[in-house]
Design a protein around this nucleic acid. Sequence first.
DNA 1: GATGAATGAGCGTTCATTCAT
DNA 2: AATGAATGAACGCTCATTCAT
Lengths: 216, 216, 216, 216
Amino acid sequence: MDEAAAQPDPAQDEEARPRTRIQRRNTQAILDAALEVFSAQGFRGATLDQIAEVAGLSKPNLLYYFASKEAIHVELLSGLMDTWLDPLREMDPEGEPEAEIMAYVRRKLQMARDYPRESRLFANEILQGAPRMRAAIEGELKDLVDEKAEVIRGWQAAGKIAPVHPYHLIFSIWALTQHYADFDMQVRAVLGPEGADPFPEAGRFLDTLFGRLLAP
Amino acid sequence: MDEAAAQPDPAQDEEARPRTRIQRRNTQAILDAALEVFSAQGFRGATLDQIAEVAGLSKPNLLYYFASKEAIHVELLSGLMDTWLDPLREMDPEGEPEAEIMAYVRRKLQMARDYPRESRLFANEILQGAPRMRAAIEGELKDLVDEKAEVIRGWQAAGKIAPVHPYHLIFSIWALTQHYADFDMQVRAVLGPEGADPFPEAGRFLDTLFGRLLAP
Amino acid sequence: MDEAAAQPDPAQDEEARPRTRIQRRNTQAILDAALEVFSAQGFRGATLDQIAEVAGLSKPNLLYYFASKEAIHVELLSGLMDTWLDPLREMDPEGEPEAEIMAYVRRKLQMARDYPRESRLFANEILQGAPRMRAAIEGELKDLVDEKAEVIRGWQAAGKIAPVHPYHLIFSIWALTQHYADFDMQVRAVLGPEGADPFPEAGRFLDTLFGRLLAP
Amino acid sequence: MDEAAAQPDPAQDEEARPRTRIQRRNTQAILDAALEVFSAQGFRGATLDQIAEVAGLSKPNLLYYFASKEAIHVELLSGLMDTWLDPLREMDPEGEPEAEIMAYVRRKLQMARDYPRESRLFANEILQGAPRMRAAIEGELKDLVDEKAEVIRGWQAAGKIAPVHPYHLIFSIWALTQHYADFDMQVRAVLGPEGADPFPEAGRFLDTLFGRLLAP
DNA sequence: GATGAATGAGCGTTCATTCAT
DNA sequence: AATGAATGAACGCTCATTCAT
């Protein structure tokens, strides 16, 4: 999971993706460079020149692999959605409720730490009204949240966790974990140089927060 | 309180701002339009043409009032910082600790509701590494947070609230409230049409969350 | 003769020029400022803003006195031509030939010293093919040169001065004197700080040069 | 010898200049067009559109070869200085003094005839205070003049030529030769159609002038 | 597969000029 | 007599994209 727009399931490439090794390598280089640039500058703020330079390719060569700037962006986002939802997907309805949610929080925080660029790419997209991701949000993402909210409701009905609003509970997990990626600059500026890595403390803080919130 | 870059204290204009009515009107129209466009598209994504159209002015006329596109952005941001920190500033060291923090959360959520564009403008800026706001973040903002963290620590030492990490407590308030402005699109998409206004429920949720977190 | 575009004959104003004192003062301020700016930046390089600032007037006020930027320039040039030719006009056919020419050289050098901006304005205009002065060059100026060339030819026929080409003699006087105004920057750079004022030495040099050239 | 910013030594291109034929051709076309336009309109008066049209290229294509309008101008000027000083550089300290100077005058007049655009480009630059050439004037140019002035002083000390001021002697050569390029329009207007080519007569005139001036 | 060359569309900005007062 | 306000036209420049090889 160190690549750009991590693709957990390489099998999905079978049809759409190029075959030769060189193509795969360049495609990945482009996506990785694009992630770097798009996440830092936004879609319009990024230029193909920047992406090409980071990728170590010529600009026309970029467009040999992707039809357009937008196509790169779309590819990045569509590759992202699955990865993005994985931590939630893994929440096991059969597991121990509080532990399941706490584990979800930790996975999500881990993602914010390991994939801050993906988080910012996503944040940029949502901030601008999700012009290229609306369908995935209203479909895939909403469906999964609906499903998991139902699970949570079940847990609550069984008295295993406190009866807080399931959707807002999920929002709160997103907000609190992604904040450390998206507002990283601010977090570090406020904590100052001594607290170089905010994540360990953030992990403990969120443990406390959700522990208290969920206690039945 | 529906204007761009809300100025709670209109008296501050007396010196720095232009005098004639027409100037005040156009300057405000530009700032309001710019807020609309910058918050939705980011700095580079926004164009003067868009801003001019929203403001109902010609493009050169924009530049009659502001020296450059950047100057408009800077004006917006600098006007924003004060407003942005006001809810925290109002937190009274002499007040009742839990109530003070809960009131801060509610003020902050209210701001997310009333000024979502300002919140997104701010989020855009931080996401991109705060190229035009770094100084204010590292100065003004950090200073206030340092001060208030000390207050919180005092309350905790006195056993009035739970001894959670003061800085992360503040981050959590920011994250949880601003999320409803910045990720508004996603929140609404997930909640679906029935929960048209997410804020009342969000308010209740945050009351519970921080009530449980802070209980000594 | 310290004003812009010196007008030796104030009588010519009678009709065309404004009457009130304030108007006369502003008109002069504009022309003086315009001379300053046009001579240093060329016509297209100069802006009305610059001229307005130097003149201490508002930009629309400039256009209250002159119909357009071009009108200011034309006024400047047309006012200049007479002054420009005066030194040559004064050359007296009845005078002592060599002394007359030497005196002309000295008057011309004096003008280069006293009116370098006028000289540069003129040079700019000619350099660019005299788009706004062609008529005056082909008419007024050529006529005077033709007349004086004839005088010189007479002096030469009488054996009073050496029989050098009269037109090129006049060109050489122009070139050698105006050079000290037009290429002032270069002259000073080459001579270095010690020779702060190049004109006295230039005067002696030209005396020698034309003395030897004209000796019969 | 009809190219822009004449490069007498094509070998100097080897490293710095682009390699492909197409690049060389377009680069030259741009420089030639720019020389045409800059020399006639000045830097600010010239537009990239004009240059592009003369060069037969699109405007963005100009900027594919040169980083900016200013970069074209600078390239033109920096290429010019060497060529400009060559005639003086060739003046041989070991040669016969009067003949050396006379030959310099003729070379310089030849340059005015063959490269009038370069002369006007240079004149424009100096007229405006040499904003982009100051360093070269105060360095390269001044150094060469200092050196050659010393040579002339040596010749004068040896009684080979008249003891006129060496610097003003050089200025006079510049003024008298460049005048025929820079003020070409005026020269032709005054001489009228019959004397279509002023240069032959100018050559004879300058021969006489400097012959008499330098005779010991 | 890959790239140097080229461009149309659009960007932020400047500026001479006009308008309203 | 003067100026704040406004703008159309154009400017230098950027950029995603296309073309030719």
